[in-house]
């Protein structure tokens, strides 16, 4: 107990030194690192790391803040510090778009119950596509319930790359599924290529039908319709989720 008290006093002294010396948040973060470098006791080092992480979060250096928080000595953390570290780690993972990792951090540590933390919890749940739980979490936090319900009724549906690939065999079906009307020309091109091949075959030009039709179908149908399916699906999934989360942040005033 005595050593804990002593380390707290040392930390308060060092914090004073930091705030006097530091001119910017970035420099403050460095000075907190110096506290750790100078061999502070575990409790004081934890305080310094939490303060450093706070500076880095304010600077938007999420990965650095997460790395700093992962160095915390958990055994020397008090209950309030545990909550603070859980909140900051979740926030960092959320901003780094690692929604599953953010969910895992929320699950493994005592998470604070302050309104701002509850908002973050709702956002993380939505990021991990647990929309029902996110809605349940967000509902008591907003004044405009209608806007929230409207947003969640249009929740982004995750598209399957495999389904898109199978549907892509019929070009229009693939484009409708992926909501990409701008790829209309590949449908026209595919139909025209097939028509050209059939016409040449009926005219008795078998080689032209097979080779020419094959080359055109390969260029238009395979290269421009089937091949980009997976990347298109991934892009669609991430963009639709990001848009949803942005709107949810606006409603939650996060």
């Amino acid at each position: 107990m005595k050593s804990r008290l002593l380390s707290c006093i040392i930390f308060i002294f060092l914090s004073g030194a930091v705030s006097v010396r530091a001119q910017s948040l970035a420099l403050k973060a460095v000075e907190y690192e110096r506290v750790i470098f100078e061999g502070a006791a575990p409790a004081a080092a934890n305080e310094a790391m939490l303060s450093r992480a706070g500076c880095l979060v304010q600077l938007g250096r999420w990965a650095d803040a997460e790395a700093c928080l992962s160095r915390l000595r958990m055994y020397a953390l008090g209950p309030e510090q545990r909550e603070e570290s859980a909140y900051l780690r979740t926030l960092c993972q959320y901003r780094l778009k690692n929604y599953d990792a953010a969910l895992a951090v929320m699950g493994e540590a005592e998470f604070p119950s302050a309104p701002e933390a509850m908002k973050l919890k709702a956002l993380v749940l939505a990021g991990a596509r647990e929309f029902d739980k996110a809605l349940e979490q967000a509902a008591p936090l907003v004044s405009d319930r209608n806007a929230l319900d409207a947003l969640f009724s249009g929740r982004p549906k995750e598209k399957s790359a495999l389904k898109a690939l199978f549907l892509g065999i019929i070009p229009t079906a693939g484009h409708v599924y992926l909501e990409r009307p701008d790829l209309w020309w590949t449908t026209v091109g595919t139909v025209a290529s097939a028509g050209f091949a059939v016409y040449e075959a009926f005219s008795g030009n078998w080689l032209t039908a097979i080779l020419g039709g094959g080359m055109l179908l390969n260029t238009i149908y395979v290269d421009n319709n089937l091949r980009p399916t997976e990347s298109t699906v991934m892009k669609y999934n991430s963009e639709s989720l990001e848009k949803f989360l942005q709107e949810l942040e606006t409603i939650l005033d996060f």
């Binding site: 020309w185 091109g189 025209a192 290529s193 050209f196 016409y199 055109l216 238009i220």
Partner: peptide, 17 residues
């Protein structure tokens, strides 16, 4: 008909590239 088909194909190729 055939020329129209070829024209459409050429247009598609040019659009894509």
């Amino acid at each position: 008909m055939r020329r129209l088909g070829v024209l459409i194909l050429a247009l598609c190729l040019c659009t894509g590239l």
